[in-house]
Write a protein that binds this DNA or RNA. Structure first.
Lengths: 280, 280
DNA sequence: CGATTTATGAAAATTATTTACAAAATTAAT
DNA sequence: ATTAATTTTGTAAATAATTTTCATAAATCG
């Protein structure tokens, strides 16, 4: 996890009031922070040292010193110019460059908002799953579908249904050895939330994949995985986030495959043969 | 500000004995320093806190905290390592970093293998299309599906069928104002080739999306778009290529949307409203 | 509206950093 | 080789910074 400033922007909405003040001050004066003491920062933010420390802990940092070090590191990295967005004056070459930068950035951000411990837990339950149900609607359905095609390859029984009734029926038949993965960029898709609730009722493990921050889906899931919530470019729905989600699926898949290396190796050989008959 | 580590190397000869020990330790373990206290560093260097402080002053730094901040900033220069591939000894953090690098690389490659003129032609025919059929099997089906969900948003009638018979039926009903987009990583998927052949028979425009190189699909399509063919990591199917393909779809979509800016603007507003009722 | 949870800051406790100073080591001069 | 001067160093005290505790205030919930 590297760019702490970006992290702060992302989490801003979920901060407590005093934390918001601190976040704002830091984002307004990042280069000053590294030269300030906790007491100076506290008074500059009209808050207390304790709140600064809590703020650091909220960010999963060891303490104020850690914050300073992370900010110093963040400031040393320069950003590609994605700010302007895409407009009608842009040439095809411009658009290619911007979309490329944008999608690369979305993937990069994933690693910054990824909680490795949470990821590890997800890999654990997925590795031990007797069956996995992937659930997502609309664009997130693509991600769920992609996940299914991948995990099928290593012989883990898994489902993805487009129809919410089928999703619910399937979830209602899960057991405690099974896993339901709910994918929703906003975290508010009621169908997905309902499926995870149904899965939970059956004592199955539940994993969410959403944008950073609180949401109904995050509330209901046992394990929460996040992708970046920056969707500034052009006026369109969750475009880059979908690539970030797929990137996360790749990570989960490879991690599970590595964990089950010996048995999986064989399956990959088999399915590689299967798709070489009908290349995709 | 100069890179402090570089600075230390330069000044090394002019240091006092105890300072040399400190300098050596810092250069040997720069990433550890930022997590150490002055006491820890002193004992690690077999010297005293006072010497550390003097060392900092020698470097014209305010003190030990300043040293940590400067080192953190120096370390924030990037290092990506894709060489080794992923193996069972890799930690979760390693896997995350490698997949992230890998997928970013796949996207970056897209822009290098993209023929802008060919892309421009593709954008032209897509912009003028009365109807678009997207066709792909397996993992490429995900890309076709994604493309459909996007182009639907700007009110271009389009189809994606999983069933090859339906794909062929749909293609058989295309006219010369329509476009068929065939997606296949290898370019050899017979179903996709057949669909484009059927489309061509009906005088529809045909676009292929494949890895670079000759293939049956490239032979049959009017316009050929390529993604990079690097698939070195881990032993698995076209994993990163799918992200590269999606990136290409993003480019096509945004380019078409920009081209039809005025009318499209309104549609995006509408569909944005539609999905805010049911957030994905 | 009361009960419970959550958020906050003052102050205490802890920990880290810096400084002062004396001892040790080194150097230079006889 | 011995001594004085100088430089370097570590200990311990002083200072400063950070973290924790805890009581209270604010917000939220039933």
């Amino acid at each position: 996890m590297r760019n702490i400033l970006f992290n702060i922007v992302e989490l801003k909405d979920s901060f407590r009031p005093s934390e918001k003040k601190i976040a704002q001050y830091i984002l307004d004066n990042p280069e000053q922070i590294v030269d300030m003491t906790i007491t100076e920062l506290a008074s500059a933010c009209n808050t207390s040292e304790a709140s600064i420390v809590r703020f650091c802990k909220t960010l999963n940092l060891k303490g104020f010193q850690d914050l300073k070090v992370k900010i110093a590191a963040s400031l040393a990295v320069k950003h590609s110019s994605l700010d302007g967005g895409i407009d009608r004056e842009d040439s095809i070459a411009d658009i290619v460059q911007k979309i490329v930068d944008f999608n690369k950035e979305a993937i990069e951000q994933t690693s910054h908002v990824t909680d490795l411990e949470e990821l590890e837990r997800a890999v654990d339950v997925l590795s031990n799953a007797k069956r996995i149900d992937f659930c997502g609607m609309g664009a997130s359905g693509i991600v769920a579908y992609d996940a299914m095609t991948k995990f099928m390859r290593i012989n883990i029984p898994c489902n993805y249904y487009q129809d919410n009734h089928l999703q619910l029926t399937s979830a209602a038949n899960l057991s405690e050895d099974d896993v339901a993965v709910g994918i929703s960029y906003s975290g508010t898709t009621s169908e997905v939330v309902d499926v995870l609730k149904a899965a939970k009722e059956r004592s199955a493990s539940t994993i969410s994949i959403t944008k950073v921050g609180k949401s109904p889906l995050v509330e209901v899931a046992d394990i929460n995985l996040f992708v970046s919530s920056q969707e500034a470019i052009f006026r369109m729905g969750a475009m880059a986030s979908r690539i970030a989600q797929l990137n996360l699926i790749d990570i989960l898949f490879v991690s599970v495959a590595i964990k089950k290396y010996d048995e999986v190796f064989e399956y990959l050989e088999n399915t590689s043969g299967a798709t070489s008959i009908r290349k995709i």
